[in-house]
Design a protein around this nucleic acid. Sequence first.
RNA 1: UGGGGCGUCGCCAAGUGGCAAGGCAGCGGGUUUUGAUCCCGCCAUUCGGAGGUUCGAAUCCUCCCGCCCCAGCCA
Length: 552
Amino acid sequence: MSAELRSNFLRTQIQGDLAAGLSRPVITRFPPEPNGYLHIGHAKSITVNFGLAEQFGGRCHLRFDDTNPEKESQEFIDSIQEDVRWLGYEWHGEVRYASAYFQQLFEWALHLIDEGLAYVCDLSPEEAREYRGTLTEAGRNSPYRDRSTSENMALFLKMREGEFSDGERVLRAKIDMASSNMNLRDPILYRIRHASHHQTGDEWPIYPTYDFAHGQEDAIEGITHSICTLEFEDHRPLYDWFIAHLPVPHRPRQIEFARLNTSYTITSKRKLKRLVDDEVVAGWDDPRMPTIAGLRRRGYPAPAIRHFCEEVGTSRSDGMVDMAMLESAVRDHLNRHAPRAMCVMRPLRLVLADLPESMTLAVSNHPADPQFGERQLRMDRELFIDREDFREEANKHFKRLVLGKRVRLRGGLVIEGERCDKDSDGTIICVYAKCITSVPGADPEDGVKPKGVIHWVSAEHSVPATIRQYDRLFSVADPARADDMTSALNPNSLVVSDDAMIEPALRDAAPEQVFQFEREGYFVADRYDHSAAHPIFNMTIGLRDSWSGSNG
RNA sequence: UGGGGCGUCGCCAAGUGGCAAGGCAGCGGGUUUUGAUCCCGCCAUUCGGAGGUUCGAAUCCUCCCGCCCCAGCCA
């Protein structure tokens, strides 16, 4: 394990296991159920599981926990694999499926029946709930609990043959109906579902539950550390019970950590699905979604997401991480990796009447990294600047273009505002300025430096683009706790503008390429919709801004 | 009110008997052809609370308080 990684209880635990003589390589697994798209919380689990394997020279499996066919689909299986790879990880060997172990699981169920440790129960779901008791009252034994081994065997075989209807019977473990741990009150091992499975088709009319499947899957694969979230802690005694009572080839160990929660987001798959189904967003990969696919389409780089997951740490205490931390990781990565370009969002015509002739400027693509090279930009008599960058008059805090004051056009000349035209409503429609310098990049000869620098594009040589500006989807920090998710939505989470003008070269941006539009923020060429004929950029995130809040 | 967890700065989080790391946020200053970046500085005499053990406690003990999870034939 590299020394620079901060310690956490998982790494400490594994180091301890290794020191205590764990003789096999560390093997972890990322075990999603294919019933939705992966989200930022899964990203955390992925970096934990794949990261641990990597740090300890072990391996990590990708295993679909597909024990509930009615909620699962091939679409999710495909998207999950794509997302894991995009995040930068490759699983060891083939993709695994819990469903590939159905026959083994079935045989282990027979074993438990044989041992008198499992029985077929005919209680209806409602009756079973009654018999289960409550948190403070013990449950009662099912009237079917003492069936003979042969009767249980015969009944379970009939279940497997599809002779009963859905919900008619279940197979339960015989543990302790009075246990203070609800999971030990004769948990269900198999339920009847005449449902076609995306992997096994109609081969099985019965499906194992999570509890009966997960630990055994881990055992089959030789998983050394089965890492899951805190809510499964109460299941660990049951996990261990199966491992102890079944002839499994290996004893995996379950360790729980606190799931990742980030402010202003929701990670319930059920609720995310509702946003998609209700068309509140444009799909699972809408750039406002906390899904991996959404973050990707928003322009969040995979290395930034991985770095964020490492930075927040891994512990056992519930909490909520400030979204600003993820955003910081994104800005940090993009600042170093995104080439600079100019985009004028709210164009205002600027005329340089005394510019002798159009000139071609060589402008750096990155202020701190020469490897990005430079690009040629045309500076003509007529330009566009942002409306926000001009005022007829302003106090000294306004470092942009003002009548009678100087400002530099990024990478070009220093100019001075002279006058402006307005329409009948008083709206400024054109600004006139004179050139103070004649050589690009030079300072004024009189030594009076410009107040600031503004960005611009050539009126003639720029091209229109659609800019999709995103803001957080929810306006409350903890939408998961809102009584009504819909009322917590931010009505301005998406603002589309077709007014923007961009440098012509931006037309040729590759899908998913991210640029910094100087003085604005980071923008990504939309993965699907961007084209040279119709450039479309999604705002990834704005630049940090210490001005607008205090003065603007 | 049964059981299982968790409480260290505004938000995350190291630390496990010997001087309370770090990141994010925030605040001040410097550099700057991006109000960005970068750089410098500030930001917990105290670890949920109260007792106790100890030369010494965030770390060990006792009691108390707060928050989270569990009563799916979901995972």
